[in-house]
């Protein structure tokens, strides 16, 4: 346990979280493609094989369905597996296990068998990895009852959510935006587990609410800083968890600011942004001074060319111009 405030990277925060969990509880082990000798596709588990050995840092074949299913089975058998899938795109090969088994065993068995598995994966675009490595499908997973969907954006959440997820009796999916691994940030001394049930106001404001998560948080915070120079005070909400969705936090903000922009790297149609917008309509319609708006990933498979990719992703400048327009409107 570090007793001093530190600057560490998001990657190091995730690594520390896994290490600590494995030190604390013998039931915890890490399993996935290249987590051992290679050190993890994003170097999250670097050096962990030497520390914990190959029984607990398990390199798997390229068999997403089998090793995710094995994580589910191991959880049923009394272990606390952390399964790493390289990216959300590959998780589609394990969709049967996640959706048909992990999410449903408890219910199909009438409450007899819970599945305390944690499945981590990288998500998001921004690295010119093209159409099969760059998507943000976490909102899609949030459609499914029976699983929890976490999207840690900050160093503190990356460090603190894992243990809470492991102690949760049900399956938890953790989405780590791939552009955040190198981000440096402040971690308070003696880090503790954090809750996985609540959204949080990352920056208070009075004129408009921007609801986002993951890498969108930092774009929103940048935008809010610049907008503040024009005397527009933006309240920024980090959802942190996409399922269960913490309505109360963003509805309270809507009641205060009366304007909402939702920022999501995922696609617009049928996405988590649509769900949030619907909930605001259902419960806070009369609090609104203007229609809820959305800034989402453009609905195109991610192109390789850098300028096209950036054009497909929500950007700070987009947030600034939409917010300015919305704040000027009288609804």
């Amino acid at each position: 346990m570090n007793t001093q405030d530190r600057e560490i990277t998001y990657r190091e925060a995730v690594r520390e979280a896994i290490r600590e969990a494995m030190q604390k509880d013998e039931r915890v082990f890490l399993m996935g493609e290249d987590v051992g000798r290679y050190g993890g596709c994003f170097a999250v588990s670097k050096d962990m094989l030497d520390e914990f050995g190959q029984e607990r840092i398990r390199d798997t074949p390229l068999s997403e369905s089998a090793f995710v299913g094995a994580g589910i089975g191991a959880a049923l058998g009394g272990m606390l597996p952390v399964v790493e899938i390289m990216t959300v795109n590959f998780s589609l090969l394990a969709l049967d296990q996640i959706v048909n088994n992990a999410a449903k065993y408890l219910h199909m068995s009438g409450g007899l068998f819970n599945v305390p598995v944690v499945i981590r994966m990288a998500t998001g675009g921004g690295k010119q990895l093209a159409a099969q490595h760059s998507h943000s499908l976490e909102g899609w997973y949030a459609h499914i009852p029976g699983i929890k969907v976490l999207t840690p954006a900050t160093i503190e959440d990356a460090r603190g959510m894992l243990w809470t997820a492991l102690m949760d009796p049900d399956p938890v999916l953790i989405f780590e935006n791939n552009t955040l691994y190198n981000m440096k940030g402040h971690l308070p001394a003696n880090p503790v587990p954090v809750d996985i049930d609540h959204a949080i106001v990352r920056r208070p404001g009075t004129d408009i609410t921007v609801i986002t998560y993951g890498v969108g948080l930092f774009k929103a915070l940048d935008a809010a800083e610049k907008l503040s120079e024009d005397d527009i005070e933006t309240e920024v909400i980090d959802l942190r968890t996409l399922r269960p969705l913490d309505d109360e936090t963003f509805l309270a903000s809507v009641a205060k600011t009366h304007r909402v922009l939702i920022v999501d790297e995922g696609w617009r149609s049928g996405g988590i942004s649509a769900e949030i917008s619907a909930r605001i309509m259902e419960r806070s319609f009369y609090d609104l001074d203007a229609p809820t708006e959305r800034l989402c990933g453009v609905e195109v498979p991610m192109p390789y060319a850098g300028h096209l990719e950036q054009a497909a992703l929500p950007q700070t400048e987009d947030i600034i111009s939409i917010v300015k327009r919305m704040v000027k409107s009288n609804g």
């Binding site: 089998a66 299913g69 089975g73 088994n101 199909m108 068998f113």
Partner: peptide
């Protein structure tokens, strides 16, 4: 399903039980 007899279903996706069985054996 039944916990007393360690009966883990009843899987209605053809092949879907195999990875789970592998994981249960891994836990053992």
């Amino acid at each position: 399903f039944d916990d007393k007899t360690h009966f883990y279903g009843g899987n209605a996706i053809v092949g879907g039980g195999l990875p789970v069985a592998v994981g249960m054996a891994l836990a053992s």
